[in-house]
């Protein structure tokens, strides 16, 4: 083997470089091919399945946004328009009124309005709602479950991995196609339970 043979040295280095370059290009093509089989043109967004939600309160505390991009929404079609609303009033209200001490919501984000005897309308003020699900818990256990949580896409940053989904105890948050970005109760049906065990 000759020492210091300039051209040979450079030639060898170039040969190794070109070979490695080709190998790396091949790897990239391979990864691309593996992935391309399953790509989807439309994006995915995060959303809550309200039928899986257990109102753990983490939507309010774990979202990267403050306040959370999760808000309570109201499926009016399911609402009983009750006077004694389990989502609006504390379980032991002094009176069925709009007095702050009787409200369940920690930020008073639910507005109650009299329609006609005996019906009352409840509307969520999303600017105040923090997504804590306290009203959802009340409505689901005492009422019809017309109040439920949804991720609002005008607020959601669509993180690569949703910080709430990571800790959701019911695994209720999943990626769904961006062209149908909501799972609002009433229109959206509960998926039939697969586990019978």
């Amino acid at each position: 083997m000759q020492d210091n043979s300039e051209p040979k040295n450079i030639e060898r280095r170039r040969f190794i470089r070109n070979g490695m370059q080709l190998a790396l290009a091949g790897t990239l093509v391979g990864v691309a091919a593996l992935s391309v089989k399953k790509t989807r043109a439309s994006g995915m967004v995060w959303q809550i399945d309200p039928f899986k939600c257990v109102q753990c309160g983490r939507c309010a505390t774990e979202c990267v946004r403050m306040p959370s991009a999760v808000k309570c929404v109201h499926a009016y079609n399911l609402c009983g328009y009750c006077d004694l609303c389990g989502g609006y009033l504390k379980p032991d209200p002094n009176a069925r009124s709009t007095a702050a001490e009787n409200q369940l919501c920690p930020t008073a984000a639910i507005q109650r309005r009299f329609i006609e005897d005996p019906f009352y309308e409840y509307v969520i003020d999303e600017n105040l709602c923090i997504g804590c699900a306290k009203c959802v818990a009340g409505c689901t256990s005492f009422g019809n479950g017309s109040l439920h949580l949804q991720i609002r896409h005008n607020l959601c940053k669509n993180c690569n991995e949703c910080a709430i989904a990571r800790v959701c105890p019911a695994e209720a948050i999943s990626r769904i196609p961006a062209d149908k970005p909501y799972q609002i109760k009433g229109g959206f049906r509960k998926t039939p339970a697969k586990d019978k065990g």
Binding site: V73, H74, Q150, P181
Partner: peptide, 22 residues
């Protein structure tokens, strides 16, 4: 799933809003 009450005063029910994704 369940029919809502019938309102005598002609109350019209608001829609549940769903702001679009990006």
């Amino acid at each position: 799933r369940f029919p809502k009450p019938e309102f005598a005063t002609g109350y019209s029910q608001p829609n549940t809003t769903a702001p679009a994704a990006r």
